[in-house]
Simulated assay, not measured.
Amino acid sequence: MRKKSNFKLLTVILASLMLILAACGGNKSSDDNKENKSGSGDKISVAYYVNGTLGDKSFFDSAKRGVEKAVKELDMEVKTIEGGTNQADWPAGIESLASSNKYDAILVGTGQTVEIVAELAQKYPDQKFIFFDDVIKDQPNVYSMTYSQSEGSFLAGAFAALVTTSTDLKQANPEKVLGFVGGMDIPIINDFKSGYEQGAKYIDPEVKVVTSYIGNFADAPKGKELTLAQINSQKADIVYQVAGAAGLGILEGANEKGVYSIGVDSNQNGLYPGSVLTSMLKNLDTSTFRALELFKQGKLPFGSHETLGVKEDGVGLAQDDLFNEHVPQAVRDKIAEIQEKLSNGEIKVKSTL
């Protein structure tokens, strides 16, 4: 009986030791052995929240290309959520991602969601946010990046002024009038406008820029209507669109009237070849991929903000085969010269932000 009792006691002791060891093994250091929230071990899980819809062939689609590249080349898991155009839905939509505790990082952007993300970053301090196209300060779990749209738009304005004064481009009229159609009268859009005006004046101080605002980034018919008014009433012979999905109407209107236009964010030259002469690239695709790559490497500086300009390839002009086909060599050469001066700091562009 004593032997059986001792055996039972030994069994209890061994079982207790195994439980203690298992518990110690389960409490891995969050710094050294943290598993990704995706539950797949090596794969990082990211949510890309679009505060709008995809299909704009511009801003959100550009960021989506960076995300898709991260899936292929960095072996990440990314879920894309389209939040729609009703701004009242965005706070709950983004919070549902943060509260789910499923994602290593949430990718979201634009000035319209700054306050939402800033509040959620405080509410969910363990959730990492990668924020693009505006600044979020003093949040240790947020990395934000902006683009020097004023520098990119300086190139667009210089280009437009070269076009309107060109004798080699058939649709350029004698009037030195450039069009600018923005989505909304908000600070970031006006930074585009300021850079555009500075670039135009750099080429010719007599150039005039006429401006219209749609009131949103979705109403393509309104964008087209405003563009036609600039062309018919104010004699604009080239129009720069900074209006997201609404900008598709701007490009359509310019093409219908046989005048020139400049796309934005993504390369839109192929939409109306010969009418869309170039596009001001806000390289969300390359910068988004860069941020996700640094995040995977553990090198993304959360709590900080970066501004990406011409020098960093954050912005620039689309200079593809269509650009080379439809833009005179003299204009191309001048743009290359200005781009170099922006890159080396010889030309300084003032930002309104």
Rank of each mutant, 00 (worst) to 15 (best):
N36R: 12
D42I: 03
T53G: 07
S40M: 15
C24N: 09
I20L: 14
D56W: 04
G25N: 12
G55A: 12
N33H: 11
S29H: 02
M18A: 15
N36I: 02
V46R: 08
D56Q: 09
M18E: 06
C24Y: 14
L21D: 00
A23S: 11
A23N: 04
T53I: 12
G39S: 02
E35D: 07
S38L: 14
N36L: 01
Y48G: 09
A23I: 10
K34D: 02
G25M: 14
G39P: 03
S16Q: 00
N36Y: 12
S40K: 15
Y48V: 05
Y48W: 10
S29K: 01
D56A: 06
N51R: 10
K34G: 14
C24Q: 08
I20E: 02
K43V: 06
N36V: 02
I20H: 03
S29I: 00
S58T: 04
G55W: 08
T53A: 15
M18T: 05
S29A: 02
S16M: 09
G39V: 06
S45H: 12
G26M: 13
D42V: 09
G39R: 03
S29R: 00
Y48M: 14
S16E: 02
N33Y: 13
G26K: 08
A22H: 01
G39L: 08
K57F: 12
I44D: 03
E35F: 02
D32Y: 09
L21C: 10
S16W: 01
V46K: 05
S38R: 07
D56E: 10
S38C: 13
K37T: 01
K57N: 14
N36A: 03
K34C: 03
S40Q: 13
K28N: 09
I44Q: 12
K57Y: 07
G26N: 11
D42M: 10
A22F: 10
Y48D: 07
G55E: 10
N36Q: 10
G41C: 09
T53C: 12
M18G: 04
G52L: 11
I20C: 05
K34E: 10
S29W: 01
N33C: 08
D42G: 07
G26S: 15
A23W: 05
G25T: 06
D32H: 09
I20R: 06
N36W: 06
G26L: 15
I20D: 01
S40G: 09
L21N: 06
N27Q: 12
L19H: 02
N51Q: 14
S16I: 11
S30L: 12
K28Q: 09
N51S: 15
N27A: 14
G26R: 09
K34V: 04
N33P: 00
G26T: 06
I44K: 14
S38G: 15
D31K: 14
K43Y: 03
K37G: 03
A22W: 05
K28P: 00
K43E: 13
N27F: 14
G52P: 06
S58F: 05
G52M: 10
N51I: 11
D32P: 00
N27Y: 11
L19P: 00
